[in-house]
Design a protein around this nucleic acid. Structure first.
Lengths: 124, 124
DNA sequence: TCTCATACTGACCTGGAGGTAAGCATGGCG
DNA sequence: CGCCATGCTTACCTCCAGGTCAGTATGAGA
C-alpha cells in the first residue's frame, strides 16, 4: 500500500522502529544481509512463516526501500529479494539492537538461550 | 503482567525491539533519560497520551527493568519514574535508531520534517 | 463539608497485524 | 493429459495494543 510510506512517524527513532519492526522483518533482513534470496529460499529458511505473510513483509520492506525485488522471466518464475544499500546500512543498527538484547538478557533473565550477534558483523 | 517478562523473544535483536517498541516508549524514554519525572510531569510533557496508557507503558518498562518507580509517601501522592542503568544503556541504541531514521528520511522522503537526534547525545 | 491534585484501576471498544486455507497462472516434463 | 514447482492473491478470522470514559482513595485546605 502507498499508505505504508506516508505514515512514517516524524520522529527519526520511531520511524526506524516502524520500518524494522514487523513480526518477521528482523529475521528476513538477517538473511538478506548475506546476499539475495529467492522467495522459496526464504520460505525454506523460515518454515514458520506462511508465504502470504512472508510476501507481505517483503513488500513493506520494499516500499520502505530497504529491500529490492528482481523478477527473472523464467518458468517456473524466479524472484530475488535483496537488501538495498539502505537495507545494508541497517546492519549496525541491528548490531546495536542485538548487543543490547544480549546485555538485557544477561542482566535479568536466565541468560542462557539467547543467540549471539556474530553473523551480523561478518563482511559479505 | 508477569507474562510481559517471560514472553521475550530468544533472538536478541527482537528482544530489544519488544522492549522498546510501544506506542509511547521511545518518547517516554527520551524524557526519562534526562532525569526522573513524576507521572504528572510526563503527562504534561506528552498531552496526547492518556494517563492510563502512560501508566501502562511505564509499567511494562518497569517490568523490563529499564525504568524504576519510586513512591514518596505524601499527600497528594508523588511517584517518580526514572531510567535505570539498563535504561540509560539504551541511549546509544536510540541514537543508532535516530540516526538511521534521519538517513532514511533524507534518502527518500521529503527530508524536511524530521527532528534531529541532538539531545540524546548530551551528557546528563 | 465540598473541592482539589495526584496516581491509579476497571469496563469497554476498535483497527490493524498477522494467522489459516484456498485458489490461480505458467510451461516443462513424464 | 495430468502433475509439478514457483510466486502471488483473496477471503476470512483472531487477537491484542492502545484508545475512551468513568470511577476510586487520600488528606490538605477553603
Amino acid at each position: 500500500m502507498a499508505s505504508v510510506m506516508k505514515n512514517l512517524p516524524p520522529l527519526p527513532a520511531e520511524r526506524t522502529l516502524r520500518v524494522i519492526s514487523g513480526r518477521w522483518k528482523p529475521v528476513i533482513l538477517y538473511h538478506l544481509l548475506s546476499g539475495p534470496r529467492r522467495l522459496s529460499e526464504l520460505s525454506r529458511l523460515m518454515p514458520a512463516v506462511s508465504q502470504k505473510v512472508l510476501i507481505q513483509q517483503l513488500r513493506e520492506m520494499e516500499a520502505h526501500r530497504i529491500v529490492s525485488r528482481t523478477i527473472f522471466p523464467q518458468v517456473p518464475p524466479r524472484v530475488d529479494y535483496e537488501a538495498t544499500a539502505l537495507g545494508q546500512s541497517l546492519k549496525p543498527v541491528l548490531m546495536a539492537l542485538c548487543e543490547w538484547g544480549r546485555r538485557h538478557a544477561a542482566e535479568l533473565d536466565e541468560p542462557e538461550h539467547v543467540a549471539d550477534c556474530a553473523r551480523l558483523s561478518l563482511p559479505e
